[in-house]
Write a protein that binds this DNA or RNA. Structure first.
Length: 504
RNA sequence: GUCUUGUUAGCUCAGCUGGUAGAGCACGUCACUUUUAAUGAUGUGGCCGAUGGUUCGAAUCCAUCACAGGACACCA
């Protein structure tokens, strides 16, 4: 079915012609000795010389042809490698006899990957170029590239055929280079602080550590179902029980839920756990982490994000209840009373599930009235215990937990707390979640008896945090869809099988 | 899941209130030894997302479906 397009047929014929002429259209004897970026840097001085060229220098560069201008006996070719774009000047009389007319002009075209040797010179229009003395085809592209000026803009094509997007859009490559740096810097930051990177299971017997619907798979040998992990939390805390004092894991989580601009079914997070520390220490290390990223990524502390401007020198800290009134405008007496909250929400024409407890309702108020207003980095602290089943209670007030979530540009970026290490309290919280589940909350946390048992051996006082890497990268690259920071975002399969429909 | 917009040549897009398709780029042929989205001439290229319906006649109107974008819901 593929390769039937007439343009492709035409190019296959060219590849055949080249084979007949003794030229391998898929050669692998590359002699490249410099990247385009290095070539341009090393030869920048040519522009200051009188002759505007240096025939004693010689370089071999390789890349994909992006533009081709044939002008009779000479041509200009723009080739691109990972590092940049370079203009090549190809003249008939500088190449072997017959090569220019029969091979180059007729059988090498935009999209092909070529290798060119020659010397640096500056054109009349002032562009540092390479004067070709030999040219070799490395890879024949039989599919034509999208249009040179507009490129591909269709999002469906860009996501489904990311390779085309990457060929055509250099700034997309830049985004993913930044993503790679963020992950690398994150790893280095925590390693330098003495954290140990670990790998915990991706397939869990119990989907724990968060409230979310899991993907289910089946293990044949054990004839048992497994859940793709929704969070690594409970395994990482078992490691703290085991005596590791600072661990982190950067990896994928999977949640079987809706997809939108900030949700993909598989997403990357870092979770780290730090013994003998509290959530207060996490606030400090988080600020330090951001400063580290900004320094190494060369980002301005007043970071533009769409229409917004986020000030990373203005970290705020505010308890959740307080934020409801000071930021959300909810009257103080309403925020502390379940019935009044229900009445308030109804008045604002906001529908919520019935029979929610006070903590859950305060969470609803926060989501409705506060979250999107948090532009500069803000630590929202003191979460209600009902919506924090794995967090330690405050010593001063047992209804709230020693927890924060970090919001930036109206979006949750991190979730952190002093860990609950009282096994009896943890068992009680799980039981509370179980009764919520029985009452119809299908996203309540699962009971994990093995985890309670682990805690029963004693987990040192510990603080732990999770940071959504995808959303963080979105923020740092000024992208507004998670799909633009994932190389291969989740897409529905296309059913182009007209056959199966006709077969009936 | 709901609402909404889109799907026309390889790509980017036109195509009014129905009369079986257009442009630019790309591609073919020709000219051109310093171009910058090169230029000039000329030509090829389409089951108008799929299936039904209305109509003498459908890219166009209607319905259903598929995929995608956006918004909302869900995701504590």
């Amino acid at each position: 079915m593929p390769l039937t397009n007439k343009y492709i047929q035409q190019r296959i014929e060219k590849a055949e012609f080249l084979k007949q002429a003794g030229i391998n259209p898929y050669a692998n004897n590359s002699q490249r000795n410099t990247s385009i970026e290095k070539y341009l840097n090393v030869n920048a001085d040519i522009a200051n010389t009188e002759s505007q060229r240096d025939e004693n220098r010689s370089y071999i560069v390789s890349g994909r042809i992006k533009l081709l201008r044939i002008m009779g006996k000479a041509s200009f070719v723009k080739i691109e490698d990972e590092s940049g774009i370079l203009q090549i000047y190809v003249a008939r009389d500088n190449l072997p006899e017959g090569f220019y007319n029969t091979i180059f002009k007729k059988n090498i075209e935009v999209g092909d990957i070529i290798e060119v040797g020659g010397y640096p010179f500056v054109t009349g229009k002032g562009e540092l170029s390479l004067h070709a003395s030999n040219l070799k085809l490395l890879t024949k592209a039989i599919a034509p590239l999208p249009e040179k000026f507009h490129g591909v803009t269709d999002k469906e094509i860009r996501y489904r055929k990311r390779y085309l997007d990457l060929i055509m859009n250099a700034e997309v490559r830049k985004t993913f280079q930044t993503r790679s740096k963020v992950i690398s810097l994150t790893r280095r930051f925590f390693e330098d602080k003495g954290f140990l990177e670990v790998e915990t299971p991706m397939m869990h017997p119990i989907a724990g550590g968060a409230n979310a619907k899991p993907f289910v798979t089946h293990h044949n040998a054990l004839s048992t179902d497994r859940y793709l992990r929704i969070a690594p939390e409970l395994y990482l805390k078992r490691l703290i029980v085991g005596g590791f004092e600072a661990v982190f894991e950067i990896n994928r989580n999977f949640r079987n839920e809706g997809m939108d601009a900030t949700h993909n079914p598989e997403f990357t997070s870092i979770e780290f756990y730090w013994a003998y520390k509290t959530y207060k220490d996490l606030i400090e290390i988080t600020k330090e982490y951001f400063a580290y990223l900004f320094e190494h990524l060369n980002l301005p502390s007043l970071l533009p994000y769409g229409e917004l401007s986020v000030n990373f020198e203005n970290f705020q800290e505010i308890p959740l209840i307080e934020s409801l009134t000071t930021i959300g405008g909810v009257p103080a007496e309403v925020a502390q009373d379940a019935e009044k909250i229900y009445a308030y929400l109804k008045e604002k024409a906001i529908n919520v599930k019935p029979n929610l407890n006070l903590g859950q309702l305060q969470g609803e108020l926060f989501d409705e009235f506060v979250e999107e207003k948090l532009i500069d980095p803000t630590f929202i602290t003191e979460y209600p215990v009902e919506i924090s089943p794995l967090a330690r209670r405050s010593d001063e007030n047992p209804d709230i937990t020693e927890r924060f979530e970090l919001f930036i540009a109206g979006r949750e970026i991190a979730n952190a707390f002093s860990e609950l290490n009282d096994p009896v309290d943890q068992l009680g919280r799980f039981e509370g979640q179980m009764s919520a589940k029985d009452a119809g909350d299908d996203e309540a946390h699962e009971m994990d008896k093995d985890f309670v048992e682990a805690l029963s051996y004693g987990m040192a006082p510990t603080a732990g945090q999770g940071i959504g890497i995808d959303r963080l990268v979105m923020l740092l690259t000024n992208e507004h869809s998670i799909r633009d920071v994932l190389l291969f975002p989740a897409m529905k399969p296309q059913n182009e099988d007209e056959q199966s429909q006709k077969e009936e």
